[in-house]
Each structure stands twice: as structure tokens, then as C-alpha cells.
Design a protein around this nucleic acid. Structure first.
Length: 107
DNA sequence: ACAATGACTCCTC
DNA sequence: TGAGGAGCCATTG
């Protein structure tokens, strides 16, 4: 927010935007990439503001279980699952089944 | 400055 | 196996 370096949100947005199509990532993973003291909660908090930016594929970010925890914040909530399924993901019971195979970044 | 909240994660029962 | 509580960092009132 302040002019101090890039806010953690800026970093998080950058990372999320770098997620290639057909891939997904987790909050904790992004937090690790961002480094610093940023925690998984901050990633989710940042994405909460991200919904204002269409360039941020927030639907590709799920919790470590692959569960669509943030689907309720979409317009409509089903949009998240739709987008994921549209990219070739198998979403069942609000959970991505093959997210581990398409997890990003590649370890 | 303090307390409360949140799209998380981990540990324990 | 499933449910509950604590820890975690940053933002907001």
C-alpha cells in the first residue's frame, strides 16, 4: 500500500498471473514463492482483492487439498469450477481430483 | 496500539 | 477417519 517496495499483494498477483493455463497452485505454495513472512492466509486475502482484476486467474488457486475453498467468492460461485473444468481439470465435490498432476510450479 | 477477521495450514484428540 | 483448536501474517475498525 505504501510506497515501500512492492506490497505482498503485488508479488502475489504477479505469481498468480504467471500460472500457465491448465495448471493450478496452492496458497501455501504461492506464499513460499513470494517468500518473506507472507503466510498462506495473506495469499487468500490478496486474492480477495484480486477479484477486481480479470487478469488474475484466481480460480487456479486452491488450498493444499485442491479444494475450492474460495469458490464462494466468485460470481457466481460455480464459475470457479466451470473455469477449472474448462481447462481440463476434474472437479468433484468442489475438489480438484487431478490437481496434483497439474500443480504449478513444477517441483 | 489493541482486538477482531480471513479464499490457510498443521497438530492433536 | 473425522472434527476441533492453535499458529500464522497482514489489513481494518
Amino acid at each position: 500500500m505504501t510506497d515501500n517496495r512492492e506490497s505482498i499483494y503485488d508479488k502475489i498477483y504477479k505469481i498468480v498471473r504467471q500460472i500457465p493455463e491448465g495448471k493450478v497452485s496452492t496458497y501455501g505454495r504461492i506464499a513460499e514463492i513470494v517468500g518473506g513472512k507472507t503466510g498462506a492466509r495473506m495469499v487468500g486475502y490478496a486474492l480477495n482483492h484480486a477479484h477486481l482484476d480479470e487478469t488474475i486467474p484466481a480460480h487456479r488457486v486452491v488450498n493444499r487439498n485442491g479444494l475450492l475453498t474460495g469458490k464462494a467468492h466468485f460470481h457466481p460461485p460455480e464459475l470457479m469450477q466451470q473455469l477449472l473444468e474448462n481447462e481440463g481439470f476434474v472437479v468433484e465435490n468442489d475438489k480438484i481430483m487431478n490437481f496434483e498432476e497439474n500443480l504449478w510450479p513444477e517441483i
